[in-house]
Write a protein that binds this DNA or RNA. Structure first.
Lengths: 111, 111
DNA sequence: TCGACATTTCGGGTTTCTCGAACTAACTTC
DNA sequence: GAAGTTAGTTCGAGAAACCCGAAATGTCGA
């Protein structure tokens, strides 16, 4: 259950976090990661029509920005939003953004 | 006093706005644009050590994302944060972000 | 041990970013 | 009103980032 390298809470940078969220795919992944904690890469990306290799890059960007944590669990990686670290460093950042993403997402309104 | 083209309020996209804010230079420019409305490109970029041509690109990205408005005023461009449009479309997005940027910026704490 | 599975790495092609140099357009000064 | 100055954009080339198919890695189940 090794944990992949990620920046410490104190070294999170606002611009990097915003960059990680500033892509429609990653924004949606972050949204899903929050509502389904401890889920895996492919489960979270279900239905998105983005190739695995591209997704792997998205996860890396999100992890390096400090948005998510990834733990190796067998052949899966479990994704967890670093909600607490982010709330600590950047209060009132993540929650409003993900709420707005929720409201904007066509996948959330339809069905 | 022509106004440069910009997306309508309704067509603002969250990911694009976050992308526009997800760069240290642009984040700082947005911060300054709010505290000094109707200022000009070079006045806002004062002291940043970024070449004009690069700045011009940053302004374009911010304008196309709907973060700012630019009006041609003689040989200047006046920059205005689209705070109202953004608040309307994405409540609780811009204010927290700019407040956090303020707190994080080394230029704000020092001196 | 042999495959199937989840994900990453590699390599290339494409897009985006950066920034100096040349350009444009508007004011100033004579 | 020509000539210079100023504010900003455009162009073009090099650098960096992104995208994605194919191959590789590591793990589980039979």
């Amino acid at each position: 259950m090794r944990q992949l390298p990620e920046p410490a809470r104190e070294s999170l940078r606002l611009a990097s976090v915003l960059h990680a969220l500033g892509d429609p795919i990653r924004l949606e992944l972050a949204r899903r990661a929050r509502e389904t904690p401890e889920s895996t890469c492919s489960a979270l990306a279900d239905g998105l029509d983005v190739p695995m290799s591209t997704l792997s890059n998205h996860w890396r960007i999100m992890r390096e920005a400090g948005l998510i944590s990834m733990t190796v669990d067998g052949r899966h990686r479990r994704i967890r939003l670093r909600a607490e670290d982010l709330r600590d460093r950047f209060p009132d950042l993540l929650d409003p953004i993900l709420r707005l993403a929720e409201a904007e997402a066509p996948t959330s309104g339809t069905r």
